[in-house]
């Protein structure tokens, strides 16, 4: 009996030892920061002075006096609401590359290729495509006779955010496509066959079979889109630095500026809390709507 018990203890020790490194990393860099961040948001604190209780001061400041906060929040929401466009586009492409045609693997690779590349480089490339004087987009528009003069896309208050969104969709559409494609490939072909025998046309088949069965995949894409709008720092930082004014600032870039450029760590922490609560609410909502099937996703960067 005691031998078995000792073995059991040894096994538990081993399991503990195996779990320890990952647990330490996640506790150190996810759990503790989350709590610390919450505490920080109720304090007056900067690297040069001791902490002091602030109550809801930062939240009041944010909600009632900081117009920029509302602007970047709106931008984040717009950024998020644009993701269904990308998902629709990706769904179209996924349906096309799911057809039994030659070379579909090549098409998949090319569409997906923009996802794993460095976002900083993507930002630089797109910034230049949008350039007023030497940008490819302006050149094409001028050649086709739509405009006489280059449009300063990224310097324009109205156009800058949509332009960043287009670049972001360009980068992420391949990822959506792959997720949707996996969903499509899990649909048993027999379903289509029996539907065809019953005389269903292709639109009916799409509506009755394809859409319901890839619903989980679509919700995964929506969650990815939500995460993306809360974490897409690189693209905005490189393309516009949040400008002109705050026209392209997202919550995450605003937090970075407040914390690391202006050293207002306490205020930035309060912003982060709002950011996180907002994000979590949306993610849980999406999860609920999808019937709990679209779980958590990690985009990694």
């Amino acid at each position: 009996m005691s031998i078995i018990k000792r073995k059991r203890t040894r096994e538990l020790l081993l399991i503990g030892f195996f779990l320890a490194p990952s647990l330490i990393i996640f506790i150190l860099y996810r759990i503790i920061p989350l709590i610390w961040n919450g505490i920080l948001s109720f304090e007056f604190w900067s690297p040069y002075k001791p902490a002091e209780f602030a109550g809801l001061y930062h939240y009041q400041e944010m909600l009632f006096y900081d117009d920029v906060f509302w602007e970047v929040l709106l931008n984040t929401v717009i950024f998020m609401l644009s993701s269904p466009l990308g998902i629709l586009l990706a769904l179209g492409i996924a349906l096309l590359v799911n057809a039994p045609i030659r070379g579909r693997n090549l098409y998949r690779t090319i569409v997906f290729m923009s996802y794993p590349v460095m976002t900083v480089a993507v930002g630089i490339i797109w910034q230049w495509l949008y350039n007023e004087k030497v940008g490819l987009i302006n050149y094409i528009l001028m050649s086709l006779g739509f405009i006489d003069q280059g449009i300063p896309f990224l310097e324009s208050f109205n156009l800058a955010l949509p332009c960043v969104i287009v670049a972001s969709i360009w980068q992420v559409v391949g990822f959506y496509m792959i997720v949707l494609l996996t969903g499509l490939q899990n649909i048993p072909p027999s379903l289509y066959e029996s539907a065809a025998i019953d005389g269903a046309n292709s639109w009916q088949r799409f509506k009755r079979i394809t859409l319901p069965l890839i619903r989980p995949s679509i919700f995964i894409c929506i969650v990815i889109g939500i995460i993306n709008s809360f974490t897409n720092f690189d693209l905005v930082f490189v393309m516009t630095q949040g400008g002109p004014g705050h026209a392209t600032d997202l919550l995450i870039t605003y937090i970075y500026d407040e914390a690391f450029k202006l050293s207002k760590f306490d205020y930035a922490a309060a912003l982060t809390v709002v950011n996180f609560v907002f994000f979590l609410g949306l993610a849980l909502l999406a999860n609920k709507l999808s019937g709990g099937e679209a779980g958590a996703v990690e985009t990694g960067d």
């Binding site: 996810r30 989350l34 961040n37 809360f230 996180f276 979590l280 996703v297 990690e298």
Partner: peptide
């Protein structure tokens, strides 16, 4: 932990 994007913990991190 998966639901905590690293970006939102950046200040304490």
């Amino acid at each position: 932990c998966m639901m905590i994007p690293f970006q939102v913990t950046i200040i304490p991190a």
